[in-house]
Computed example of a mutant assay.
Amino acid sequence: MRNLAVALLERTRRPGQQRELYLIVAQAAALLASESVDLGLWPSAMEYARAAYTYGEVAGHDGVRAYARGMQATIAYWTGQTAEAVGYAETAVALAPVGVARVRALAVLARAWSHRGAADNVRRAVSAAEDARGSDGQDLLHDIIGGEFGYTPAQQARSASTAWLEVGHAEPAIAAAVSALNLAGGQPGSEWSTVLAEARADLATCQLLGGHLDTARETLAPLWAMPSDWRRTGLLGRLQRIHRLLSEPQWQAVSNARQVAELASSFGTAHAGRPALPPA
C-alpha cells in the first residue's frame, strides 16, 4: 500500500489527490511503525514513525501527526530514552484532536512520565485521559477508521496499569489491570488478545510483589499456550520483568517460583525471523 501510494504521487499534480495520497502514505508508515514495535525492530520503527509524521505534516493532518509522535514516545521509553519520550508524548498531546486521539496521546504521556519515576505527572495524565474519553471526536484515523488507530477503554486501562506499576503504585495498578481484563475479556476474538495478556502480566507482577505466588501462577497460566506469532514485544518485556522478579533471592528456593521463572524466560524464544521491510 505504501509503495502503491508513492507511485501514484508521481502521476498526479492535483493538490486534492496529492493530499489524499500523502495521508495514505502516512497511514501506511504509521502502521509499519506499530508493527515494527511489536517485533522489537526499534530502528525501523523510529524510521517509519518519523516518516509518518513528515507525510502527515505535508498532508496537514494532525491526527496522524499525533499518532506518529505517540509512537516515537513509545519507542523512546522502550529503548531507555526517557526524556525524549516525554518530549514526544507532550507534542502528541498538543497535536491530538479531541476524541480517541487525545485519549491515546495522554495515555502514552502517562507511560512516558512513569519511566521518569514521576508519579504525580502519571496521575495527572491518567486522569486527563479518563476525562478525554468522555469527548466525541471526528478524527478520520482515530474516531472513524479505528482499528489499529483506535484506542479502546481496555487498552487505556492496560496502559494505566503499566504506568502505575512502573512507579511502584500497586493499588491503582491492580485496579487498572483488573479493569482491562474485564473490558477486554468480553470482546469478540479475545482469546489471544495482547491487551488481555499484558494486563495479566501486570496483575501477576503486582501479586508477586505482594508475595502471592500461587495467585500469580493462576493469573499467568492462560499465557503459556499463546501461539508464538502473538507474542509481541510489549508482552515479552513484561514477562522479562516477571523473570527478573522471580530470580531474586527470596524466590530461588521455591520450586513453583523457579518453574514460573523458566516459563517466563522461554516465552519469547520461538520467534519468526525478521520480515522484509519496505523503505520509509
Rank of each mutant, 00 (worst) to 15 (best):
L4S: 10
P222G: 11
V93Q: 08
G189P: 03
G147S: 12
D136L: 12
V25S: 04
N121A: 09
T54F: 13
A51L: 06
A68S: 12
T269S: 14
A257R: 00
P188L: 03
A110C: 06
A30F: 04
D143Q: 08
Q156G: 02
A125T: 01
Q250R: 14
A204M: 01
A7C: 03
A76F: 05
P172G: 09
G186H: 12
T215V: 14
Q207K: 13
L41M: 15
Q240F: 10
D214W: 10
A105D: 00
A7L: 06
A45R: 05
R124V: 03
R13F: 09
S255A: 13
V178C: 03
Q252I: 10
Y88I: 00
R65E: 01
D38N: 15
A83W: 11
P278C: 05
T215Y: 11
S193D: 08
A276T: 15
W230R: 15
Y55S: 04
S161Y: 04
Q187M: 13
A184K: 01
E90Q: 14
S44V: 01
P249E: 08
V93L: 10
R19S: 09
M71T: 12
E57R: 12
G147F: 06
Y22R: 15
T215R: 15
A119T: 05
A92D: 00
S179C: 06
A199L: 06
V86M: 06
S44A: 15
R133P: 07
H115M: 00
Q207W: 10
V122T: 04
G150M: 01
L8D: 07
E20D: 09
A225T: 14
D62I: 01
L263N: 10
A45M: 04
A73M: 05
G211D: 01
A201Y: 03
A96C: 10
E90Y: 02
G150C: 03
R200C: 02
P275V: 07
V254M: 08
I75F: 06
M71A: 13
V58Y: 01
A5F: 07
N3E: 10
S193V: 02
D202M: 05
Y55L: 01
W224I: 06
E90G: 11
A29L: 07
I174S: 04
Q250D: 11
D139F: 09
A92C: 10
R217K: 13
A73P: 00
D139M: 11
A89H: 07
P15D: 01
E10C: 04
A173T: 02
R238W: 05
S44C: 06
Q27L: 03
A276G: 12
S228D: 15
P43C: 09
A201I: 02
Y22W: 12
Q27T: 05
L220W: 08
L39I: 03
A157V: 04
A29P: 04
R11D: 06
G16E: 11
S247L: 03
I174R: 15
Q240P: 00
A30Y: 08
P172R: 12
A5K: 02
